[in-house]
Amino acid sequence: ELVLALYDYQEKSPREVTMKKGDILTLLNSTNKDWWKVEVNDRQGFVPASYVKKLD
């Protein structure tokens, strides 16, 4: 499943990933309501769920 980055996000820990507004990311896990695991540029990590939106 793919998600769209709604905002820029700068990683604050090694478990997170940086994304730019408009990026298309692969959603790996959305079981946590606050932090979703995504893959971007061959890196996996977490981003705030409120910063991304699922693409239909």
Results as ranks from 00 to 15, higher is better:
residue 48 P to Y: 02
residue 24 I to K: 06
residue 5 A to M: 02
residue 7 Y to A: 10
residue 13 S to E: 08
residue 23 D to P: 00
residue 1 E to Q: 14
residue 54 K to I: 14
residue 1 E to G: 13
residue 49 A to P: 06
residue 1 E to A: 13
residue 2 L to V: 09
residue 6 L to G: 02
residue 56 D to V: 12
residue 4 L to N: 02
residue 18 T to H: 05
residue 35 W to G: 00
residue 46 F to T: 03
residue 28 L to R: 05
residue 41 N to R: 14
residue 56 D to N: 13
residue 24 I to T: 06
residue 37 K to D: 04
residue 4 L to P: 00
residue 20 K to P: 01
residue 36 W to T: 03
residue 26 T to A: 11
residue 28 L to E: 02
residue 41 N to W: 10
residue 44 Q to L: 06
residue 27 L to C: 09
residue 11 E to C: 13
residue 54 K to R: 14
residue 52 V to S: 01
residue 3 V to I: 09
residue 29 N to L: 09
residue 30 S to G: 11
residue 24 I to L: 09
residue 48 P to V: 02
residue 31 T to M: 11
residue 34 D to E: 11
residue 47 V to G: 01
residue 8 D to N: 07
residue 51 Y to T: 10
residue 19 M to I: 15
residue 4 L to Q: 11
residue 32 N to D: 15
residue 12 K to W: 04
residue 28 L to M: 07
residue 47 V to C: 03
residue 47 V to A: 04
residue 51 Y to N: 07
residue 53 K to A: 12
residue 18 T to D: 04
residue 47 V to P: 01
residue 26 T to L: 15
residue 27 L to E: 00
residue 8 D to H: 05
residue 22 G to Y: 05
residue 42 D to Y: 10
residue 40 V to A: 15
residue 30 S to C: 11
residue 17 V to M: 13
residue 37 K to P: 01
residue 46 F to K: 03
residue 18 T to C: 06
residue 21 K to C: 10
residue 52 V to K: 00
residue 37 K to Y: 15
residue 39 E to I: 11
residue 15 R to H: 13
residue 12 K to M: 11
residue 1 E to R: 12
residue 4 L to T: 08
residue 43 R to Y: 04
residue 8 D to A: 06
residue 54 K to C: 10
residue 30 S to H: 09
residue 36 W to P: 01
residue 9 Y to C: 02
residue 31 T to R: 09
residue 6 L to S: 03
residue 55 L to P: 04
residue 42 D to M: 12
residue 23 D to V: 05
residue 49 A to D: 03
residue 10 Q to H: 15
residue 35 W to E: 04
residue 25 L to H: 03
residue 25 L to F: 06
residue 20 K to F: 10
residue 44 Q to W: 08
residue 40 V to D: 11
residue 1 E to K: 12
residue 43 R to G: 04
residue 42 D to R: 10
residue 6 L to E: 04
residue 22 G to T: 02
residue 4 L to R: 09
residue 13 S to A: 09
residue 3 V to A: 12
residue 8 D to G: 06
residue 46 F to H: 05
residue 7 Y to D: 08
residue 16 E to C: 07
residue 37 K to A: 08
residue 4 L to K: 08
residue 35 W to T: 02
residue 17 V to E: 01
residue 40 V to F: 15
residue 25 L to T: 01
residue 7 Y to E: 10
residue 24 I to N: 03
residue 51 Y to G: 08
residue 9 Y to H: 04
residue 39 E to P: 00
residue 49 A to N: 03
residue 25 L to N: 00
residue 28 L to F: 03
residue 15 R to L: 14
residue 1 E to T: 15
residue 35 W to R: 03
residue 16 E to W: 03
residue 31 T to D: 15
residue 50 S to W: 10
residue 8 D to L: 02
residue 50 S to L: 10
residue 14 P to M: 09
residue 29 N to P: 03
residue 51 Y to F: 13
residue 31 T to C: 12
residue 48 P to T: 01
residue 40 V to W: 07
residue 1 E to C: 15
residue 44 Q to V: 14
residue 22 G to E: 02
residue 1 E to P: 12
residue 10 Q to L: 13
residue 17 V to A: 05
residue 47 V to T: 02
residue 34 D to Q: 10
residue 41 N to C: 13
residue 9 Y to M: 01
residue 11 E to G: 15
residue 6 L to T: 04
residue 39 E to F: 07
residue 7 Y to G: 05
residue 37 K to Q: 12
residue 24 I to C: 07
residue 2 L to I: 09
residue 19 M to G: 00
